[in-house]
Amino acid sequence: MEERLARYLISVVEQGSFTRAAEKLHVSQPALSQQIRHLEERLGVKLLDRSGKTVVATDIGKAYIGHAARALREFDAGKRAVHDVRNLDRGDLRLAFTPTFATYLIGPLTHLFLSTYPNITMTVDVLAQMDIEAGLMHDRFDLGIAPSHPESAEISGTSVGEEHLNCVVSPDHPCADLLSINSEVLSTLKLALFDRSFATRLFIDKHFRANRLQAKISVESNSLEALMSLVSYGVYATILPAFAGNRIAGTRSIPLSPAIATRPICLLKRADGYHSFASIAFEQMFNSTDWALPSTK
């Protein structure tokens, strides 16, 4: 009963309207309004200000909703714990990635995990790190993958490795059989690179400046698919994190010399939250992944 009323109250405030909240909750508007009034009468306080065009929480209502929201998160975590299965014959896993990591980590990581635990249902969101941390605190995600440690003390972060950038070419490219690509060779290549909205590109540009390379950048794109399409012609090369390049079929992923200094890969989770068996298994897989060594293609 209290759980349902708390959800009703929070929905009314989120929607700013009894009508919209009733539609979202699939209840009638009069019934919803009556339930909230009964809650206010029981508590002896006014939780909502109904005087304006938008329904808002009173100061007392804000305090109550804050406690109610935390209680609901724990209640929902309890329900997941009851339905959680230790042998992972079923379960759910909610992941969030920052945009750059999402481009090349979602595919291989979800494939690796689901190959071992095929009955787990995964949901994946792509968000800025600050939104991932907020989602973890509000129990919308189990784990987040981001490029830096969390700012909030409520979130724990573990650095599991660093990105290593490789030059990726097709098997028909003149450099395909090289064991490494030095600065002299790199400066001669026709490059198709991520645009500057990607943090990876910033590291590449910094490397070019530090080594005084006059790179031949033929194409810039925000699409990995577009870059790989160009690479397939055997004329262009791109630079990608080794974890991605090593796993793209029909390509050669070649280390750079000198290597490009990059950023850490961090796994984020709520410090004091319930951690499902699925999230624990994913974390173990993630921590044991070698982010530089090639995979079998």
Results as ranks from 00 to 15, higher is better:
residue 48 L to F: 06
residue 202 L to I: 13
residue 290 D to H: 10
residue 211 N to M: 11
residue 154 E to F: 13
residue 40 E to H: 01
residue 199 A to W: 06
residue 218 S to T: 15
residue 79 K to V: 12
residue 248 I to W: 04
residue 210 A to H: 09
residue 14 E to S: 11
residue 32 L to C: 08
residue 120 I to V: 15
residue 124 V to G: 03
residue 134 A to D: 11
residue 240 L to V: 00
residue 247 R to V: 10
residue 106 I to R: 11
residue 258 P to C: 13
residue 75 F to M: 11
residue 7 R to W: 07
residue 95 L to S: 01
residue 157 G to M: 01
residue 159 S to K: 10
residue 256 L to G: 07
residue 16 G to F: 12
residue 117 Y to R: 01
residue 252 R to W: 08
residue 21 A to H: 03
residue 100 T to D: 15
residue 88 L to W: 03
residue 48 L to S: 00
residue 34 Q to P: 03
residue 213 L to I: 14
residue 269 K to L: 02
residue 85 V to I: 13
residue 268 L to G: 04
residue 109 L to K: 03
residue 162 E to W: 08
residue 129 Q to M: 14
residue 24 K to F: 08
residue 76 D to L: 13
residue 80 R to V: 04
residue 89 D to Y: 09
residue 60 I to F: 07
residue 72 L to N: 03
residue 27 V to A: 07
residue 172 D to R: 12
residue 19 T to V: 12
residue 13 V to I: 12
residue 263 R to G: 04
residue 151 E to C: 04
residue 26 H to W: 13
residue 178 L to Q: 14
residue 73 R to S: 13
residue 14 E to T: 08
residue 170 S to G: 08
residue 234 G to P: 03
residue 150 P to A: 11
residue 279 S to D: 07
residue 36 I to C: 02
residue 66 G to K: 14
residue 51 S to I: 06
residue 184 E to H: 13
residue 293 L to D: 08
residue 64 Y to Q: 02
residue 111 H to D: 15
residue 264 P to Y: 02
residue 272 D to N: 10
residue 290 D to W: 02
residue 242 A to L: 09
residue 119 N to L: 09
residue 202 L to W: 07
residue 95 L to I: 03
residue 188 T to M: 07
residue 146 A to N: 00
residue 14 E to N: 13
residue 255 P to K: 09
residue 23 E to N: 08
residue 179 L to S: 15
residue 83 H to F: 14
residue 157 G to W: 01
residue 183 S to H: 08
residue 29 Q to H: 10
residue 9 L to N: 06
residue 102 A to Y: 07
residue 9 L to D: 00
residue 268 L to D: 02
residue 19 T to I: 09
residue 145 I to D: 03
residue 82 V to T: 11
residue 266 C to Q: 06
residue 125 D to I: 03
